[in-house]
Amino acid sequence: MNMTRRQLLILLPAAAVAWKSILAGTPETSPNYNMTEHWWGMLVDITKCIGCGSCVRACQMENQVPDGYFRTWVERYHVSDFDIENPKVDSPDGGKNGFPPSSFSDGKNFFVPKMCNHCADSPCTQVCPVGATFVSPDGVVLVDQKYCLGCRYCVQACPYGCRFVDPKKETAQKCTLCYHRITKGLTTACCENCPTGARQLADLKNPNDPIHEFLKTHAVQVLKPYLATRSKLFYYGLDGSVR
């Protein structure tokens, strides 16, 4: 009696391990794409953005984003030189169809494309109660659509307002950095369709990526650096008034 119980106790962990490995099956090998060789981010050159909304349209078409919701959008800033603290910002329909003529004639005016910052230390992944959102090994913040409960914790946690809950699926949605494209060697839909090269996908682990030359020679900035989210969305020409 004593012996069998001891044997059983010794056997149990081993059995559990064996059971787990049976369940796990053999890990799939994805063709030609090795997650450990990449670390994705993006470069946004504000000085080149013309506010045409090509990125917004491309994102919505590529990812079937419901109307009125955005995984990327463009904001127009008006900063008066007499009131730098309080910029006027508009983004009609996310800038999807461009912008109407400006109603201002003074001050500084510019466009700021926005999207998920793919933070390496992202607040949104930390608050998920079920482990449905995470930073992938190649640095992309993703949502597990099968696991997400739709509790909206992450929507509140994102300091950049980049998440929403899909009205039909009731799961959290966000920019995937076109994970289905970048893993096949394509660029993201927004970068593909940007006419001026204001957006550029960047692989920070690839020493030959032009991002490295750019980062070496230009002063870049991330949004809300004081939050220490280790954002990987680098802005060139970002004005201090941008929130």
Partner: peptide
């Protein structure tokens, strides 16, 4: 636990490893 925790959970971190592959299967429009 063996039944309820998906097999690929914990493969790369505290999440379902297969979710990464699922994100990559979306069809391309452009």
């Amino acid at each position: 636990r063996g039944f309820l925790v998906p097999s690929s959970f914990g493969q790369y971190g505290h999440y379902r490893g297969n979710a990464v592959k699922e994100a990559a299967t979306q069809p391309i429009s452009y």
